[in-house]
């Protein structure tokens, strides 16, 4: 046969082969398909988006920019009279509803910024430690073991001592203590992966260490980062409550933690709405993160079917 005929045969064969073999999906695509079917996860995702939007809009001033103003007499219980009185008023007559919205902004920003700080540190140290091993590993492990041996509260308190109180210190303090969990996981994964064939192959084609770390291995462990992000975010929001209880929280602005702390003194007099407002608001976003994190983990783990 002429070459033309030969080419056609091959084409047909490959086509046929392609038709038989299952279509390969990347981890992400697979996860995406699975997640799409999980209605609960989708609801949670949108809840989070909603909170993020509220936070953003509050930051640019669309919502609740007038939270400082008194809208009624002190300690009014919730009523449907107006949107401001929806959650009642606080000790100064300010709208608890507005404070809750403002608190959303603080919560989302605390979660976001502390994650933005902790994740790169965790990834960097974890990957270097897992990949290079030996003395690099020893130092990093020594460092995070030491850090995690010290009770978290103490570290947070000490860091806020140094940096002064306020939201920036909270960002840094939370970021500086949260990277450990991620680093551990990434380190473990890197240790597993660096011996794998595809990495050795990459070395074979001349990929540098940096390239191997970032271009080859990292994408394969990035799902851990996403999962960690959702956990981190939520942990940061809860940590802010404890910090406010200790007096180290956000200064001069209402946050959920500050509101719950105020509630300590109010509850015994029957003023429950500030506690309820902040708790409910926090509850839904933390819940959403939890469920989403779970679903992400289930979706991204190829072994669990």
């Amino acid at each position: 046969m002429t070459s033309n005929t030969g080419a056609t045969t091959i084409e047909t064969l490959s086509e046929q082969a392609a038709l038989i073999a299952p279509k390969g999906r990347s981890l992400w695509k697979d996860a995406y398909c699975r997640l799409k079917k999980d209605r609960l996860a989708i609801i949670c995702f949108f809840i989070i988006i909603f909170y993020a939007l509220v936070a953003l809009l509050t930051k640019i001033g669309v919502f609740a920019s007038s939270w400082e103003d008194a809208v009624g007499p002190a300690y009014q219980p919730p009523s449907f009279d107006s949107i401001q009185l929806l959650f009642g008023t606080d000790i100064f007559g300010r709208s608890v509803f507005y404070k809750v919205i403002h608190g959303t902004r603080i919560a989302m920003s605390v979660g976001l910024v502390s994650s933005v700080i902790s994740i790169p540190i965790g990834v960097l140290l974890g990957s270097m430690s897992g990949y290079f091993g030996r003395w690099v590993d020893d130092i990093v492990v020594w460092f995070y073991t030491t850090l995690s041996s010290i009770p978290n509260i103490m570290l947070l308190i000490a860091i806020t001592f140094v940096l002064g109180k306020g939201i920036t210190s909270i960002y840094i303090a939370l970021g500086a203590t949260a990277w450990v969990g991620l680093a551990r996981v990434i380190r473990g994964e890197f240790m597993k992966h660096k011996e794998r064939d595809y990495v050795v192959a990459a070395e074979g084609i001349g990929a540098s260490n940096v390239s191997r770390i970032f271009k080859h291995i990292l994408p394969n462990v990035s799902h851990f980062i996403i999962i960690n992000l959702s956990i981190q975010f939520m942990a940061a929001i809860k940590a802010e409550v404890i910090l406010s209880f200790l007096g180290l929280g956000v200064q001069g602005q209402p946050s959920w933690g500050v509101m719950i702390d105020d509630a300590k003194l109010e509850l015994a007099r029957g003023v429950w709405w500030q506690l309820a407002g902040a708790t409910v608001a926090m509850f839904f976003v933390v819940l959403a993160f939890n469920i989403l994190g779970d679903s992400l983990r289930d979706a991204l783990d190829p072994k669990i079917k």
């Binding site: 400082e68 000790i91 100064f92 109180k165 200790l246 007096g247 180290l248 001069g252 500050v258 702390d261 105020d262 300590k264 003194l265």
Partner: peptide
């Protein structure tokens, strides 16, 4: 000022 709850509220008042 002090960091306890009541001081915090008093401070808010003073700032105002």
């Amino acid at each position: 000022t002090l960091s306890d709850t009541t001081s915090r509220q008093s401070t808010e008042y003073a700032v105002k």
